[in-house]
Structure formats: C-alpha cells, structure tokens
Design a binder for these strands. Sequence first.
DNA 1: TACGCTATGTGACGGTTTGTCACGGATTAG
DNA 2: CTAATCCGTGACAAACCGTCACATAGCGTA
Lengths: 240, 240
Amino acid sequence: MMTHAINAIQFKHGVCLQCASRDSLLCAGLGDELLPHLCSRSVQKHLKKGETLFYEGDAANSVFNIKEGVMRIVRLGEDGRRQVLAFLGHGDYLGHTNKTNFTYSAEALTDVELCQFQRSSIESLSQKIPEFDKQFYKLTACLIDDMTDLLFMIGRKNALERVASFLMGMSDKLKKNGSNRCDELWLPMSRIDIADYLGLTLETVSRSISRLKKDGLINVTHAHYITINDHEALGALSRG
Amino acid sequence: MMTHAINAIQFKHGVCLQCASRDSLLCAGLGDELLPHLCSRSVQKHLKKGETLFYEGDAANSVFNIKEGVMRIVRLGEDGRRQVLAFLGHGDYLGHTNKTNFTYSAEALTDVELCQFQRSSIESLSQKIPEFDKQFYKLTACLIDDMTDLLFMIGRKNALERVASFLMGMSDKLKKNGSNRCDELWLPMSRIDIADYLGLTLETVSRSISRLKKDGLINVTHAHYITINDHEALGALSRG
DNA sequence: TACGCTATGTGACGGTTTGTCACGGATTAG
DNA sequence: CTAATCCGTGACAAACCGTCACATAGCGTA
C-alpha cells in the first residue's frame, strides 16, 4: 500500500521532470528536489480540440497551468455579446480569481495538455516551497501586464491598429517562449475569435488583415499562417 | 542604538494596529502578533492631491497598498492617447507587474495614504508569514477580476451601458468596503478621467449622465455627487 | 474522391453612434 | 474677487465600422 503510493508519486515526479514546461509556469525556479511537492498536488489533464475545460458559472476551485496547446477564454453577455478575454498557451496560468465561480469559460482551440491544482493548495503552497512565491508573483504579474495592454488596445486603438497589435502580441509570445522564428505566426483561432478578442466584427478583422497584406507588412500564406514582413512597421502601427 | 530601533518598530507596529485598513489589504487575516513582520517592511507614504506617485517608465521596484484616498492609474500612447486603467482606493493593491519598469503612472486624485513595500520583500514574504499567501492570492485575484470586467465593458458595451457600469462599479466598491449608503456616490475624478477610463470622450460621458438623470435612474446633486435612484434598473442597463 | 458544411474574403451600402466644435454657466483655486 | 478650469449642452457631420450578401476556399467525413 505504502510502496504503491510512493511509486505513484515517483511516477508523477518523473512526468514533471520531463515536462516540456519544466522551466516555465509554477515549477520554474524550483530545484528538482522540490518538484515532488508540486507534482503531488497536481492532476494532469488532456483536452481534445473543441472541448471545454470549464464554463462560466462553474465553481472556481481549481487553477491550471497550460503546458501545451492553445485555449480561448470567453465571457458571454446576457444578450449573447461575446468577449474573448485571452488566448492562452504554453507557459500561461489560468483560473486565478477571487470569486467563487468563474466569470468566463475556457475552451480548447487545439489539443491541450495542462496541470490542474486545487485552488486551496495554491493559496498555501509557499509555506512548503519557499521558492514558489517568486514564480507565483511573476505569473500573476504577467497576467496583469497582458490585460493592461489589452485594455489600452481596446479602449484607444482603431481597427487596423488593433489587428496589428494582435499580431505583434502573437509574435511577442513566440519570442518569450524562445522561438527564433517569431515572425512566422500560427493562428489557431478563427476570425470570429480574433474579432471578439479585439472588440470588432469578423469582417473588419478580415479587411484589416487584407489591408496589412496589401501594404506589404505581412504575408498570408494561409488563413491561419501569417508571416510578418516588416516587424518594425507593424510595431509602429500597433503603437499608433 | 538597539533600543532606538526597537522603539521605531514598535511605533510602526502601533501605526499598523490602528490603521484604518487593518482588515483589508495584505494585512487582513494576519493576527496582531504577525503584523510586525509586515510593518517592519513597509514605508508609510502621504501624497497631496494632484501629486504623482510614479511615472510611466519609472523602475518598478515597489508595490503599494492604498489605505485612504483615490488614485488614477494612467497609460499614455505615443501620440497622446490616454487610457485610465483603474481608479484605486481604500483596500486596493497597486504596482504588481513582471516588467522592470512601470507601464503606467499613478496619480493622486485626492490626498492619499499608502504603504510602500519593496517588491523583493513581497516576493518572499510568505516564508516569514504563512497567512500571507491567501491574502496575496486574493488581492491579485481581485485585480484580475476587475480588469476582466473592464475588458468586457470596453470591448462590448455602448456608451450608456459603460457609464451605467462605471456607476455600478463605484457602488459595488462602496458596498465591498462596508458602506450602507452604497447608492450615494462621490466621484473625485473629472469627466475626462471617466471618459478615458471608459474609452469615450468627455462629451459622451456628460450626455450619458444627463440621459440617466432624465430617465430617473440617478440624481446628480453635484457634478461629483451622484445618487442611484433605481439600483436594479441601472444594474440591468449595465449588463446590457 | 466527392460531398457538404463551415470559414473566409470582399463588395456595396448604410447609418448609428460618437466625435468635433462651440459657447455659456458653474465651480474651484488662489 | 478673479481667473482658470470644469461641466453641460446644442448642432453638425462623418468616420468608421457594422450589416447584408455572395462567391470561394478549406476542411472533415463518408
């Protein structure tokens, strides 16, 4: 019985040691010897493309680390208005809220791998893992920084600038994750998703992309594959 | 020398014990016996109305607890576009970022009292104060919740709904702070500030307020003092 | 491979909602 | 008391985006 339990933890520990996200998320900065503390509190989850992790209104008892894949975070208005709050992927943290129920849903745009933690265990993990604090500070701070950018974008930029900002944001994310091909973008989300993220309609998004293509700032090899030709100019446009 | 230092801490501890924000912010949930750990790491700050706590671009080495007064958090675009990211007051937490420099400025709309902490000490405070985790989780979560609401508002609501949401938000804040007169609002910010918060112009804000008054949802006793007559209806309008 | 469905690009058009400009009155600060 | 700032409101327009429509491309499935 006892050995069984220990083996289980060791197995999970092995999973964590070899995890593609070993150096990001909550586990980053933890020495290998501390990793079991986190592992033993996590549940590995797998979502198929299109599946929903949780719905708006569900009890908010868990938080998640996204290891692989892309998720769409959505809030719906009573009359059907829809706002995509974020696209989250490798290295992102999801579910942090003070409310008892989620005010948004989380859906998989691709197959997704994630770690699930009980909220209660996260709230007190630093006591067992001293190094945890810093990483937790960083993750929440990144979230807040991203939302700050998005607020400024939606509040004060026009359609073309918003689309440019969106593309730059996708590029920045690649760079952050260490890619050296940060101008070759894969957009797993639909035009409607992009529109609802930027506070526009899909037609306006489509036209803005066409406009950027016509002006030579980007190439559209495929609706979901875009390359940035002029990183500088796109950045300048995105800043207004 | 030694006694001097101890007295200083004891004095500060006294300040913290009697603080109006003793039951909110980072100190909430801490027993009186743990309070000195926080106190010894904090610097009390006082700002006069109109003063700036920090500017966009300043080194982000501190975070702040706002004990009293109201602050305006602002991001400026290169061409002068302005987005107010938040109005913060009693019980709010300010300065949480992963960047090395602030991407917004913080200005006092009224006289303000706050506690300043070194970011580095916050990042590792749980190791000394176990109860700190939960409170920190809560503060960052509230921030994220508020920004989520604001995103939905700016992305998907029209002018009248935004102004209604803004007023409801001010009312909710009063309620959260335990006021039983949560329909009597004091708005220390100017119409331009409100406009830049909601992604509108001041004229549109002014007209929306007049419209709400005409429709009997609110009373405007003074430009900066508004009472909500029909809490239900205003809430419904704010939700779309 | 063929079929059907969904997603995307694009045109034309409209119009609603805001922004812009202007000015008088109110409020505040010094 | 005075100047400066803030606020409310009217008239106007017009930009910018949304709506509607349809053709095409892409994708999944059988």
